[in-house]
């Protein structure tokens, strides 16, 4: 994508080709500047603690030491594997709940006619303006009151009903022609069937986008888990990494290995679903 024809109908002269090569080199150098820190991370993660500072002089460590990766998981007090599980568990459930509830609400906002619809939707929209920090204190108080503090439910439930997800899916569903619903209702489908067999499959790209957003956001979430979790067994990856850093502040290779592993799932998700994500980001803005 993105090959906007900025020089239409021009023949490729030598000057133009030279310009293109120069531009390619610039793109390459910029790309390298984005890539090198990750490379450095790998190099640090396979070094001995004593050798990390040498890397700036020698680039590679004396011997590649892959032992740091298993060491991350084999520790008496810090259960890194558990953090991984927790992050997947929490982000996964939030994503599932969001997909179901937001798509249903979006159906009600985009396909059904009912009194008061636009007013309720305006209420949803209005809350999008409110910064997230406003919600932290009261939600914390509510969660404590409901007995979900320091519990999986406290990590999952409060962040599972976003107005943003509803808004995004509604915008997406509005692009599906209404004649499809009408055809289905003439074919004999009721609302639940139209939702589940017509709208849901057609809104799939939008739902995938929302699911990626929800998963990545909650996988990386920091503030909320930080205040809601006190039990070490409930720590998600970001909180666990921070704890890891405090107890292993000096062991840079170990921390690099841990943080590198934490980065892998988002990268995989991105590479596999890149097409949807890029479209989704652009859709969210154009319609927003």
């Amino acid at each position: 994508m993105g090959n906007a024809n900025t020089s239409p109908g021009r023949r490729e002269g030598p000057l133009l080709i030279a310009g293109r090569i120069a531009l390619f080199v610039v793109a390459l150098v910029v790309g390298l500047s984005f890539f090198v820190p990750f490379m450095w991370q790998v190099l640090m993660s396979i070094s001995e603690v004593a050798d990390v500072d040498l890397l700036t002089k020698t680039v590679t460590p004396p011997e590649a030491n892959w032992e740091n990766y298993p060491r991350v998981f084999n520790h008496e007090q810090i259960e890194f594997g558990r953090y991984f599980f927790n992050s997947f568990f929490v982000a996964g459930w939030v994503t599932i709940i969001q997909v179901i509830t937001c798509s249903m609400a979006a159906y009600a906002f985009s396909r059904l006619q009912w009194p008061g619809r636009d007013k309720v939707f305006l209420g949803y929209l209005g809350t999008l303006m409110v910064p997230g920090v406003v919600l932290m204190v009261p939600t914390y108080a509510i969660v404590r009151y409901m007995g979900m503090f320091n519990d999986y439910t406290g990590l999952i439930i409060p962040v599972s009903f976003t107005a943003y997800g509803t808004f995004l899916l509604r915008q997406f569903m509005l692009t599906i022609p209404t004649s499809l619903d009408e055809a289905a209702s003439i074919d004999g489908a009721g609302h639940w069937r139209i939702y589940s067999q017509i709208i849901l499959p057609l809104a799939r790209p939008g739902i995938i986008v929302m699911a990626i957003f929800a998963f990545l956001f909650n996988y990386n979430a920091f503030f909320w888990p930080l205040i809601i979790v006190k039990d070490e067994n409930l720590r998600t990856l970001p909180i666990g990494l921070l704890a890891f850093n405090t107890s292993y502040g000096q062991e840079t290779p170990l921390i690099m290995a841990a943080s590198l592993m934490a980065m892998i799932p988002p990268v995989i998700i991105f590479l596999v679903l890149q097409k949807y994500l890029v479209k989704g980001i652009q859709l969210g803005a154009v319609k927003g």
């Binding site: 004649s179 009408e182 055809a183 289905a184 209702s185 003439i186 004999g188 489908a189 017509i198 057609l202």
Partner: peptide, 18 residues
Amino acid sequence: PKDRDIAMVFQNYALYPH
């Protein structure tokens, strides 16, 4: 509509794309 025993052809055909 589903109980009226009718069938309709729409201007944009309204075929289910999926």
